[in-house]
Design a protein around this nucleic acid. Sequence first.
DNA 1: CAACAGGACCGTCAGGAAGT
DNA 2: ACTTCCTGACGGTCCTGTTG
Length: 359
Amino acid sequence: MSKCSRKKYIKTNIRQMTMETVEPQQDGSVTDSVAESDSAHMQTQAGQNSIPTLAQVSVAGSGTGRSSPAVTLVQLPSGQTVQVQGVIQTPQIQTIQVATIAETDESAESEGVIDSHKRREILSRRPSYRKILNELSSDVPGVPKIEEEKSEEEGPAPNLAMAVPTSIYQTSTGQYSMYAEFPSIAIAQGGTIQISNPGSDGVQGLQALTMTNSGAPPPGATIVQYAAQSADGTQQFFVPGSQVVVQDEETELAPSHMAAATGDMPTYQIRAPTTALPQGVVMATSPGSLHSPQQLAEEATRKRELRLMKNREAAKECRRRKKEYVKCLESRVAVLEVQNKKLIEELETLKDICSPKTD
DNA sequence: CAACAGGACCGTCAGGAAGT
DNA sequence: ACTTCCTGACGGTCCTGTTG
């Protein structure tokens, strides 16, 4: 794929993920609406997309008014119009959804709305996706734009039991300061750090960080177990000046967002490169306090580590998108094959009807 | 059972595109 | 001009299936 088509590819990909539907208006015009369905982020349960009407569909026409072949309007012999959608559900499960427009299942619709909101929220946490989704929103009337995440990063620092002012909390979805993401941190005697975050959305209730700093781990290493009760969890910590090694075995088997979604508890290792601070918490040095060449070198190393980690995450995300895109293409192939088959059948039927009876 | 091939996945680098 | 993000390319590791 050429570089110049990259954005277009992402945009198309998200369009497909958001399952653009086309609804015919009374005057015959066509209006786009975004009926969110599924993506790899939010895997809906199999069978959620029920098939309201399936019987004897003959494809009398197709065309969406724009290049969204994932949805095709199908005219039933009775005059009813139905949508044929290629739906990607859980990975490798592809279905063709034929939904009668006149018989919209309200419960399914509301479920879809909830799903769409959840999915949109999750997608919106990715800056690149947020931007692209906003672009799509501007294309599609009636779709609300996604708010920029200002509240998380700009809010006043709540009460901190332990202030870690320059530490950065990094997830696969972005980078936040410790202040914003961890409003209250308390260290218990057993080495457990309790992080309470009463107000923020997404992270609810109490979370626990367990640091095991002695004994079995490698010298100078601290194992941080982070048990998050939130739905999307936390992917990674980054403590500047330290090396973070993700030891989550679940994420070896499954994508990180999957592990987070299933509530698995990842294990993180924070390794201080040079200094051995207690509890493995490494404070970042502010640039203004740099004096010696050694500190400058450490700062350069820290920057490099940060850059590498960001790039690592970006590469993961890029690969995930690519896989999703391939799945979308495969799904489209399946949809088009079915459509093709139906058109051939319809052609045969019409041939039979139109051929002169030689009785 | 060891050797090998193939695929999947990952981390890193490099370079282009877009934003500041 | 600089920074940031994205992605192709490359090399490495791990796992699995096949073959002798």
